[in-house]
């Protein structure tokens, strides 16, 4: 079990609180359904913090947790003979780079700022897609456009948001 005698070694609770959300977000971002991500995140912590765990710093612990979570997800996909939507080689490293580039809370705050600059129709599309989780056909019906048009519209919105946040990141770096 977890070593707690050394003053520099965090407790299991501290490790979970520090890394839990990042692991969950990582799983969702590589294509894992949110409800499955709940379970797999738990399993990842149980696997890493079980017998034989030795703390070697926050960065390595995060890398280990992400890697275990990725493997759990790949196993899940494979058992169902489904196909991964994206190559996951080095996914955990790339996720850590992505987070190091801009902390999540700051990125989300900037995304919200950037969303404020979108048209009402674009914001409506975002709400339907992410908050209401509507299928594309239903979005098309509500927005009065073809399903292919919805796809194009969302791609355009995503691109604009990424550019907007990236501009803020660059400005912040400068």
């Amino acid at each position: 079990m977890l070593l707690t005698t050394e003053p520099t070694t965090p407790t299991a609770e501290e490790i979970i609180r520090t890394h839990h959300d990042s692991v969950w977000r990582f799983l969702v971002s590589i294509g894992c359904e949110p409800t499955l991500a709940d379970d797999l995140t738990q399993e990842a912590f149980l696997s890493v913090l079980g017998d034989g765990f030795e703390y070697r710093g926050s960065h390595l612990t995060a890398a280990w947790l992400l890697r275990v979570a990725k493997h759990l997800f790949i196993d899940h996909v494979r058992k169902r003979k489904a196909v991964l939507g994206v190559d996951l080689e080095h996914a955990e490293t790339r996720w850590q780079e992505f987070e190091a580039d801009c902390p999540h809370e700051k990125r989300v705050a900037w995304l919200r700022e950037c969303m404020g600059e979108l048209t009402d129709r674009a914001r409506e599309a975002l709400q339907q897609r992410y908050e209401l989780n509507l299928p594309r056909e239903e979005m098309a019906r509500r927005l009065g456009m073809a399903p292919a048009g919805v796809k194009t519209m969302l791609e355009r919105i995503r691109r604009r948001l990424r550019e907007c946040v990236q501009g803020k990141v660059n400005h912040d770096d400068a």
Partner: peptide, 16 residues
């Protein structure tokens, strides 16, 4: 992978 990372962040910012 980066598209997926952004998709998750945008989703969370948009109320997902």
């Amino acid at each position: 992978l980066e598209d997926g990372f952004w998709e998750q962040a945008i989703g969370e910012a948009a109320g997902g």
